[in-house]
């Protein structure tokens, strides 16, 4: 018998607390595999953000610091400026990064902090029970937008990658998805690249990962992936928005 698939050595054996069908687990796997492949498990310090993934330090086999809601990029700045030879990443949701933490992420990019941000966009506040996020799609139902997001009242969803790509200090910004195996392969490539940019001391890198939230969206895991593909990707196009090579799709 050939062993063709094993759990990443970058993850602990603990069972995750995520809901069935939530793609935080896939994204954890991709990040962990990247840390193992680049052989940086021992030299990485992660920043866990407030949101469903706050407990990710139970899963990643790296030193981690838990941060106040939205502030992970500032905490990561403090860490990186203290341990400049170590690899520092933040793992943040869209409530954390695109709502309460906009100031910190913009200025981490502005200073071109040599950190990597994994930005998990599931278009909703998952942990607090499915409230509207700045990334919630027009018409999408959330507990605080019971009739669906009314853009005349709350504006159009914010596209973080496009916004951050305008900042001179951002060296690598890409949006990927994990809705099917092909997308997952692409997502992994982008994550590896983001960490490589850090290892090469280039500057700030961010990978936005479109992610599902079956519980928050009120869909089955399978339907959630279809909904992501059909609704999120048209509004949040995949691709590389900034890199130091020529710009092309990942």
């Amino acid at each position: 018998m050939n062993l063709i698939y094993t759990k990443s050595k970058g993850l602990t054996d603990r069972e995750t607390h995520y809901c069935p069908g939530c793609s935080h687990g896939i994204i954890h796997k991709l990040v962990a595999e990247t840390l193992v492949e680049l052989d940086i498990l021992g030299s990485t310090i992660g920043c866990a953000a407030v949101g469903c993934s706050i407990l990710c330090y139970n899963y990643f086999k790296v030193d981690m610091v838990e941060c106040a809601h939205g502030r992970a990029p500032a905490v990561a700045t403090g860490i990186k400026r203290t341990q400049p030879d170590k690899v520092v990443f933040t793992y943040q949701g869209d409530g954390d990064l695109a709502s309460i933490g906009t100031g910190e992420i913009v200025h981490a990019a502005h200073r071109s902090e040599k950190i990597t941000t994994i930005f998990v966009n599931n278009a909703i506040f998952g942990m607090t029970g499915g409230q509207m996020a700045p990334t919630t799609l027009p018409g999408q139902v959330a507990t605080t937008a019971p009739q669906g997001r009314d853009t005349s009242h709350t504006g159009m969803p914010i596209r973080i990658s496009e916004m951050l790509a305008q900042i001179p200090g951002a060296t690598y910004v890409a949006r990927v998805s994990v809705h099917d195996p092909k997308a997952i392969v692409q997502a992994k490539k982008a994550i590896v690249k983001g960490f490589k940019y850090q290892l090469e001391n280039r500057g700030f890198s961010l990978i936005e990962v479109l992610s599902s939230c079956p519980t928050g969206w009120g869909l089955s895991p399978v339907d959630a992936m279809t909904w992501l593909e059909e609704n999120m990707i048209p509004y949040y196009p995949l691709g590389t928005f900034r890199s130091q090579e020529e710009t092309r799709d990942v």
Binding site: V75, T77, G78, I79, R81, T82
Partner: peptide
């Protein structure tokens, strides 16, 4: 929060 990060990393 930068202070928090720096202290957490031993500064």
């Amino acid at each position: 929060n930068m202070v928090y990060g720096a202290a957490a990393a031993g500064g």
